[in-house]
Design a protein around this nucleic acid. Sequence first.
RNA 1: GGACGAUUAGCUCAGUUGGUAGAGCAUUCGCUUGACGUGCGAAAGGUCAAAGGUUCAAGCCCUUUAUCGUCCACCA
Length: 878
Amino acid sequence: MDRALSKRYDPQEVENEWYKVWEKNFSGVSEEINEKRRPYTIVMPPPNVTGRLHMGHALDETVQDVIIRFKRMRGFDVLWLPGTDHSAIATEAKIVAQMREEGISKAQLGREAFLKRAFEWKENYGGQIVSQIKRLGCSCDWSKERFTMDEGCSKAVIEVFVNLYGRGLIYKGERTVNWCPKCKTSISDAEVEYTERDGYLWHINYDVEGGGTLTIATTRPETMLGDTAVAVNGKDERFKNLVGKTAIVPLVNRRVPIIADDHVLMDFGTGVLKVTPAHDPNDFEIGLRHRLPSINVMTQDGKINENGDKYRGLGLMEAREAILKDLEAFGKLAGTKPLKHNVGLCYRCGETIEPMALVQWFVRMKELAKPAIDAVRKKEVEFVPERFEKIYFNWLENIKDWCISRQLWWGHRIPAYYCADCSHMMVAKEPMVSCQRCGSKKIKQDEDTLDTWFSSALWPFSTLGWPEKTKMLDKFFPTQTLVTAYDIIFFWVARMVFMSLDQMKVAPFKYVYIHGLVRDAQGRKMSKSLGNGVDPLSVIERDGADALRMALMIGVSPGSDVKFSDEKVLLARNFTNKIWNAARFILMNVPEELDGELRVNELEIADKWVIGKLNHLIDEVSANLDGFEFGIALQKIYDFTWDVFCDWYIEIAKVKIKTQEPNVRGVLVFVMRNILKLLHPFMPFVTEELWQAFQSDGESIMIQPWSESDRGAMFETEIAEFEKLVLVIRAIRSARAEGKVPQNKKVKVYILTEDEIIKNSGKLIMALGFAESVDFDVCGVKTDEMFATNTGAARIFVLVVDAVDKGKERARLVTMLEKYQKEHEVLEQRLAKKEIWEKAPNVAAKYKVEMEELTRCIANVEESLQQIAEGGGLGDGD
RNA sequence: GGACGAUUAGCUCAGUUGGUAGAGCAUUCGCUUGACGUGCGAAAGGUCAAAGGUUCAAGCCCUUUAUCGUCCACCA
């Protein structure tokens, strides 16, 4: 690396450069099966092709990249396949909006020209999200990039549609569907979001032929224009005699039957229900049961249609006002009650959804859902965290047929063809040119396109070449892990599972890793309307992609939402700088012999400590990553790097470098290299840049073998022993600070201990505790010059001479004594119980040792107090 | 109505098989120490939402409750 390391890490300098290298070197995975390296596949959830990168993407892509980079280093033959989604409604809406500005409508342009324009739009904006994903450092294989509407994916869509239709699993029929008047298309049940609104329950009197009145209750009076019955519960004594008679719908004066149906609740509203089969799913069912006609009163853009008599042309709300006014005028309005009720909204545009009976295409779900439920039950597919399988089950177990037709142009056109002469319908893979029944050449293709999620559901295999039998499919399917947020379990995850099980006879992936949504610092969902979204690209530009990635990954647990805050970015950015400078220190002090062989059997205690800690870290982090515990893994690497390596080992290394101890360089480089590798999945750029400084072969860190712990160098006892030293040194520093000893002043230290390790580590203790001499016996200390402290768990008694604050010693010793005595008591009580010896002898033994230590400490403190009380100095005095 | 999650330091959150509570930020004190002031050392701060239970031992397991959040279902 010829770039001199500056004092501060500058991410901009390195990021673009490295991504170019990676993209060149690591795209184009081989289709051939590698006997030694097992394949590991992730298909990227395709973002909207014309979208912009937001924090949700950033989190999703980062998680995937962490997994992929980890698995790659672990020796898997990885494929992370990227791509984009045509996002039918969202994209078409954007194009239509743009056209509106130019004063052009879809109808004016025509289907063909519209599609031409849409593809041009896609070409222009489709690259944007891709280049933004690249800036995150994602190591996906861009040579395999796919698009849901490319030739192959489209072919897969047609193949599945025709197949399902042939087996009767796709059908065309009239059902109540969710109509969005703004998007002017039907949408599936999953695409409706319910929200509670304050509304009214209006009571309206319907005359009964032959005398009497029935008061119905409704929240949508405008739908009465389409009423074809009035229903009561058959068990309701109040209305029993009216069943079978005829009611008159006010305003339109339609004669409708009064029917009995169990769906009507006696205790809600007035117990009388107006039945509008065309505009309510429940009423539609009632209509089927009672063979009621269905009168549609709405146009596609949410106005009253020709069936609405004099209200024709009014918007629904206008119609409601007008109808209520008229009802009142006719004396038919019996009352108004406020009511909180749920209103369905379009998940794309937020418009109120109008249920409407329409002829649409549906996927029959019951048969497809069952294997998908079983696959998760049998753990062929596992959710991480597991609890999300409940959501999945709940949805699939109560699923209704899936409305897949959309009245849009941007999407996969339904491969159904109609004969203009005999109306014969044909569903076929290839465009039909003549009618199979009458031979007519006048053939028209179905106008509708498919739900975006229909093509997304095939994504894990359509992207690998299916329906062709490709080597890619052979090698990389089924995939291993799918990473996504919980909000699209219904839309996408469940549908991929049942489509794959049905078409491929195998689940599309083994694990579904679910992460949460990214929220702002106040915990609110980031949204355009709130304007609280943080642009990941601005974070990258300011603090680097590594900092962004770390900010998203640190301290998160699977399935829970991530609060994104500047504090986290700062933490992450500071951490990149910390590693950078740790590396800089090593490079400045270890200019040569970078290979620095690590000779384990020549190590001293501090070396063994850091190596041992590293080995434990490697094991833990590897296990955490295998278990999708990214937040924990990253936290552990962070703690080790900062606390263990930088704050302690490098400080010790400074002492060792001065005294020219032979092993220090090897240890520093060895630990640093391992930190870089462990950290690389999370922070690819800075680790790559530094890796290059610690080796000479120029190879990318991406393909380095993952760290393996050395089982022979776990050093448990050394770790425990060294940590006693740490406590002693901390105690000295603490005593100095409490005693207000100026930082630049050295101090005499006396330590009461029988510990051999501590006795033999005077040099280190002196150096790191800013002490000038360390004695291990009590001697020559006047009480008014000393400051005492305990050392926490090790309970070694430390005396620091030359303390300035002379008044506090006694009180401090008393406090210490009380604390020790209390701890002693607690342990004594625990150990008094027989059961602990029987059931957890190792724990009991540990407690016993601690208690003995405490006993010694108490004696020491008491002795000191005694001496103070006698007014003399400790020991010989001088 | 059903399900799930959250409740731990002033704030934001970790805490993986039960063994004497952790981090970052903020606060206080002290440091221009030749890697880093995006830094270093020290300190203060928590009856782990409440009440029961299991256990030698509970933040963690069980039961109930409260508050907040999310999803699903839905009475027009």
